[in-house]
Structure formats: structure tokens, C-alpha cells
Amino acid sequence: MGKSTYHHGDLRATILAAAAEQIATEGVDAISLRGLARRAEVSHAAPAHHFGDRAGLLTALATEGFDLLAAELTGAGPDFREVAVAYVRFALRHPGHFDVMYRSDLLHGDDPQLAAARTRSGAALRAGVADLTPARPQQRRQAAQLAAWSLVHGFASLWREGALRNSTLATTDDPEALAREMLAAVQLD
């Protein structure tokens, strides 16, 4: 059956999955709508129909990533350490999403779905930090939230980029166990 008559099914989801996989293995610079169309065996115009342009595709991928992150963080429960480990786990399980989620230079920053997904994931992360500073003034709570996010995001990035491989700082090759050790060593309140 030729490309012109082939009904793909959920082409949007297929292209997003292919983009996440390609970014995870080759980096975000390797992504093109034409290349993804070839991978999905559809016309080169099909991805543009769903996403408009490359930034639209990456915005949709980031939106999906923030929603996945929110679910992962919410599923971790109220304990800050488990929420932090869930953040690291997400980064390792969804590297293609993680690599674009915080790259505002690649995204349509004014996209309302992206903004809503960011808000959901941010709320889930803040909920995990809430117990650390319950009686503190708002400014102190915000500083703790920023510190917590920076800590887990930095750790996840270091692990993903291989910076901890063969490092004397890595006492184990289990990223979740190492993240728990790191979190036990710092005090955010």
C-alpha cells in the first residue's frame, strides 16, 4: 500500500515516540520533520500537519514529558526523597523528553498546553518539598523548592551525561541508590 493511501493510526503519537527515541540516541540536533516522516513511513507533509514546524514538534514532546513527569512525581507520594528519586528516575527513563523539556530556545514558549503541563509538574515537585519548610516564610519555601529542583535536576543531568561514571563520588552504579545517599547528606530546610 502506498504512502498516499496508508492510514497510519495515531500518527501524532508515533511521531512523538520516534522523536523521543531519536533524541535519546542521537541528540536533539538530529531531529527533522522530514526524517521523522521517513521513519514513520508517511509523507513528508504529515508531521507538519500535526505539529506545524520543528519547534511545534519539540513543544508537543516537552508537553508530553511534563505530563509524564507530573505523573511520576505524584505517584512517588508525599516524601521529598521519594519525589526527588522519581525525578531522577523520569530523567533516566525518558531521556528524549528530558533533553527538550527545559530548552526554551527550542520550544514555542507561549503554548498554553506546554504552560499547563509545566504547571502540573511544578506543582507535583513543590508538593514533595512542602513538608521540608512548612512553617517558613514564602520566600524561604521558594528558595527550598529551587534548591531541591536544582539538586535533583543537576544530579539527573550529571548521571545521564556520564559525568559520574568512574567518579570517586559515585559509591554505587545504581542512580536511585546514589540519589538517596546524596539526599540524605543534604538538608534543605
Rank of each mutant, 00 (worst) to 15 (best):
V42H: 07
G35D: 04
R39Q: 11
P112Y: 06
A123V: 09
A177D: 14
A24D: 13
L125D: 02
Q139V: 08
A45Q: 06
S157I: 01
T172W: 08
L36Q: 10
D10N: 15
Q113V: 02
A17P: 03
A184D: 14
I15S: 09
L73F: 08
M182L: 15
L106W: 05
S150V: 03
H108K: 06
R136M: 09
L11A: 11
G122V: 02
D189Y: 13
G9F: 03
G9Q: 07
D67H: 15
L169M: 11
R141Y: 07
G109L: 06
D29W: 11
A123G: 08
A177L: 15
L151P: 10
I23A: 02
E82F: 04
R118N: 09
H49C: 02
A24W: 07
V186T: 13
A124Y: 05
F51I: 07
L11I: 01
E72I: 00
A60E: 12
T14I: 09
A135Y: 14
F98M: 08
L106F: 03
A24T: 09
E64C: 10
D99H: 12
Y6K: 12
F90L: 00
R93W: 02
A184G: 12
A127L: 00
V83R: 07
A55Y: 06
F66Q: 13
G122A: 06
L158R: 11
V100R: 12
R180N: 02
L57H: 02
S167W: 02
Q145K: 05
L69T: 04
T5L: 14
